[in-house]
Design a protein around this nucleic acid. Structure first.
Length: 432
RNA sequence: GGUGGGGUUCCCGAGUGGCCAAAGGGAUCAGACUGUAAAUCUGACGCGCGAGCUUCGGUGGUUCGAAUCCACCUCCCACCA
């Protein structure tokens, strides 16, 4: 890294700080030494999603400034469920499932930070290791004694659950903040970890961990939270028609991932460039200025999509995503060669093999079965507007029952490919 | 334990015997305009190509006909004890 402004200044400029404990003390602490910091990720699914990306990149930002990150997988806390700002009690997952998910998260996290032997080499930990073996009496006497229920109840993060009588909060979830606090204390003791970061919903858990660390270890620790990522139109960030955008290529293909970013509204894109990429703030401002001056289509979305896809899926996957995008949106699909088609499939364009007998198979059902649309109504709607295109041929309602002839061999590209477009953005490859 | 209010389609929320697959808003999808953006306008929005099928906390009843009436059950809310 070249000359750059101090870490906290940079984070502020990016809008990445929601709250922090005593700023002056934290800044001084970061300037004085290599700081070991941690962020926890609970296994609530078999993959991380976009919501985890900002904290994950935050760890990397700290590492880039010479600090030592600990990525903590919540094998233990994931068994309990964090009640913070959740409206309802969570469904518990079995031990095997949580452990399995923990392993997957570990692998994902590993690709973002450096695990070399240097003093800023990252550490991967699982709180299951130090929590599973604690017996009840020790837990209550050694740890629980440091918490007053009065304070625990007062936390904003659990207040609505305590005040609302229709949901309530189980003792299990109520103890979550103790477990997380214990993590901080243990990490402080074992690795000298003195800073915890997390989403702004974690503020309560973080400060209680700081308290516990001070009580049990006599050490002063710090905390910093990141803002909740919001969209300018008020809808939830990180969701698409199909649900969450995952970091695992098996759950969200690099192509879909790339497309997600490419479709970022102008009103959010520059903010997101600061949140999700390592481009300098000045660079982002420059891009913005250039786009404003240029009139017409901005460059920002493309840059954002490329940067983030590369970060999460690597150069090769990015190339694949770009190839598909170019073929489908920029070039004309007419000119694709046979190997291009094969490549599209390899690159992750959703593809489905055609059934042998398409007699009596409505186009609506075919497309729904392939996952192009979620129900027949959507296909029907598109058909009524001539918005279904099979290899350059527009289809209307009248063709709904003509699936067999639409997908007849003589209409296939190179005798086996059908590129189906539903609406402007959904593409699907069918092959014989 | 008592009294009163309530559980409606993804969410919020109307509907109190037929005109209800169920107002309105949000979310979502598609079209127009654009730049694979926003805003705006249009259409779709329980499932089904269709005939048609299945919904209004649950079960059973009254009725030609029920989300709407009755009984019981269940969950929630408010107040009282």
């Amino acid at each position: 890294m070249m000359t750059k402004q101090p870490l906290i200044e940079d984070l502020k400029a990016r809008g990445l700080i929601a709250q922090m404990t005593d700023e002056a003390a934290l800044v001084a602490h970061l300037n004085e030494q290599v700081v070991t910091l941690y962020c926890g990720f609970d296994p609530t699914a078999d993959s991380l999603h976009l919501g985890h990306l900002v904290p994950l990149l935050m760890l990397k930002r700290f590492q880039d400034y010479g600090h030592r990150p600990i990525a903590l997988v919540g094998g233990a806390t994931g068994m309990i469920g964090d009640p913070s700002f959740k409206a309802q009690e969570r469904q518990l997952n079995s031990t095997e499932v949580v452990q399995q998910w923990s392993e997957k998260l570990k692998q994902q996290i590993s690709q973002f930070i450096r695990f070399d032997a240097g003093e800023d080499g990252a550490i991967l930990a699982n709180n299951y290791d130090w929590t599973a073996g604690v017996d009840v009496l020790s837990f209550l006497r050694d740890i629980g004694k440091h918490f007053t229920v009065n304070k625990m109840i007062a936390k904003e993060s659990v207040r609505q659950r305590i005040e609302r009588e229709d949901s309530g909060i189980s003792f299990t979830e109520f103890t979550y903040q103790i477990l997380q606090s214990y993590d901080f204390q243990v990490l402080n003791e074992r690795f000298g970890c003195s800073l915890q970061i997390g989403g702004s919903d974690q503020w309560g858990n973080i400060t209680s961990g700081i308290d516990l660390t001070r009580r049990m270890n006599g050490k002063q620790a710090h905390g910093l939270t990141l803002p909740l990522i919001t969209k300018s139109d008020g809808t939830k960030f990180g969701k698409t028609e199909g649900g969450a955008v995952w970091l695992s290529p098996n759950k969200t293909s690099p192509y879909a991932f790339y497309q997600f970013w490419l479709q970022t509204p102008d009103a959010d894109v520059y903010r997101f460039l600061k949140f999700f990429t390592f481009l300098d703030v000045a660079e982002v401002d420059e891009i913005e200025a250039r786009d404003k001056a240029a009139e017409g289509r901005p460059e920002a979305q493309r840059i954002l999509a490329e940067e983030v896809t590369r970060l999460v899926h690597g150069d090769q996957a990015l190339e694949g995503a770009r190839r598909i995008t170019e073929a489908l949106f920029l070039g004309d699909a007419q000119s694709l060669s046979e190997t291009d088609f094969e490549q599209l499939q390899l690159d992750g364009l959703p593809a489905t093999q055609l059934l042998n007998d398409l007699t009596e198979m409505p186009l609506t059902s075919l497309l729904v079965d392939a996952g192009v649309a979620s129900n027949g109504k959507q296909v029907k709607d598109a058909l009524q507007r001539q918005a279904v295109i099979i290899n350059e041929t527009e289809c209307g309602m009248a063709q709904n029952m003509d699936t067999k002839s639409l997908f007849a061999a003589e209409n296939a590209r190179y005798g086996r490919f059908f590129l189906v477009k539903l609406g402007k953005k959904k593409h699907h490859l069918f092959y014989v």
